[in-house]
């Protein structure tokens, strides 16, 4: 595989890569390994037990007791850290008790709100104590991590704000929409995935905790993802359509569209973006060709347009299906 190009951005990339490698080599060669990071510094605080916490935070406890966290910690703890319940997430509380209401003492506990002000790294580290690996394998370096998001930007781990997932909003979709407003608008378009109707969620396609793909897809590629539900499109077919095999998003907007079938642009113009063969593929289709338009009606303007004849556009398994008509 040749990687050469004439473009300066690659040169920049190569230089950056070399610089990066040099930096790695430098730090490896010039520095002795650092010691492992110290455990989270709790300022010498000690655990006081959840009964002490609840004495003041009965309201919070009344919520917390209904969460998966509380049930796990209280009814079947797996280790000593889980047994301390509240303090397993907030840290040991003895220093907090010394001056519980002073803002200057907030550093004595890990808080998960903007008001409390615990650094994001410290918050997330506390969550990852238990939640590392599994579906969070790719959290470091993910789009959300790069944006310095805290786990608690999407979750509220100690209150019932959602039906599932201890989210900050009632549903997965509403939680995502708080930042991804553009997608909310797309789901309101004429053709859309059934999210507004409650039959799908953003997490059906995306892993908000990160994945190997840039848009945090729950599959190795766009097509592998789409095939989860559209298995009949998977093929492989006898006669294949090149852009269909490579990427469904060549023709479709996944979230929503002003056009039928989530298409990026109305047919027949959608097909004419690539098809310029002699004959009807290059025909200039126009308003005069719809019924009542006044000139000769063209079947390729009507209804499903090109797909009225080329109905097997995703691939045909018919021996005479080269044109996707059978």
């Amino acid at each position: 595989m040749k990687f050469s190009s004439r473009f300066p951005i690659l040169q920049v990339g190569v230089i950056a890569g070399v610089a990066y490698a040099s930096a790695v080599v430098y730090v490896v060669a010039a520095n002795s390994p650092k010691a492992a990071p110290a455990p989270v510094d709790h300022g010498g605080a000690t655990y006081v037990g959840e009964a002490v916490c609840i004495a003041c935070h009965a309201t919070q406890n009344n919520q917390f007791m209904h969460t998966a966290h509380a049930n796990a910690f209280r009814l079947n703890p797996k280790n000593e850290a889980q047994k301390v319940s509240c303090e397993s997430c907030h840290g040991p509380g003895s220093n907090h008790l010394k001056d519980p209401i002073s803002p200057s003492n907030r550093g004595s506990l890990v808080g998960f709100t903007k008001e409390w002000g615990t650094p994001i790294e410290k918050q997330n580290a506390m969550c990852l104590t238990c939640h590392q690996g599994e579906q969070r394998m790719f959290w470091p370096g993910s789009a959300h991590a790069t944006q310095n998001l805290a786990c608690s930007d999407c979750h509220n781990p100690m209150a019932k704000l959602s039906e599932t997932g201890l989210l900050k909003k009632a549903t997965i979709n509403e939680t995502c929409y708080t930042c991804h407003q553009q997608q909310r608008a797309e789901f309101a378009k004429r053709s859309h995935m059934p999210l507004p109707e409650g039959k799908m969620s953003c997490v059906d396609c995306h892993n908000p905790h990160g994945s190997t793909t840039k848009p945090a897809l729950k599959a190795d590629s766009v097509n592998e993802l789409c095939y989860n539900c559209h298995t009949e499109k998977r093929g492989p077919f006898l006669w294949e359509h090149a852009p269909v095999r490579e990427n469904c998003l060549t023709c479709h907007n996944a979230h929503g569209s002003n056009h039928d079938k989530l298409l990026t642009v109305a047919r027949p113009f959608s097909c004419q973006q690539c098809h310029g063969n002699p004959g009807h593929q290059t025909t200039f289709f126009n308003a005069g060709q719809s019924v009542g338009g006044g000139a000769g009606v063209n079947s390729r303007v009507l209804g499903r347009s090109c797909q009225t004849c080329h109905s097997q556009v995703h691939g045909s398994n018919h021996p005479a299906g080269a044109r996707f008509q059978r």
Binding site: E134, G165, T171, I172, G198, M200, H206, N207, H209, K218
Partner: peptide
């Protein structure tokens, strides 16, 4: 019920048009 798994599978929600 929390059915969501952000890493594997589809069908992460159980609901319908009345749920929200």
């Amino acid at each position: 019920t929390p059915f969501a798994d952000s890493a594997t599978g589809v069908g992460t929600v159980l609901g319908n048009t009345m749920s929200a």
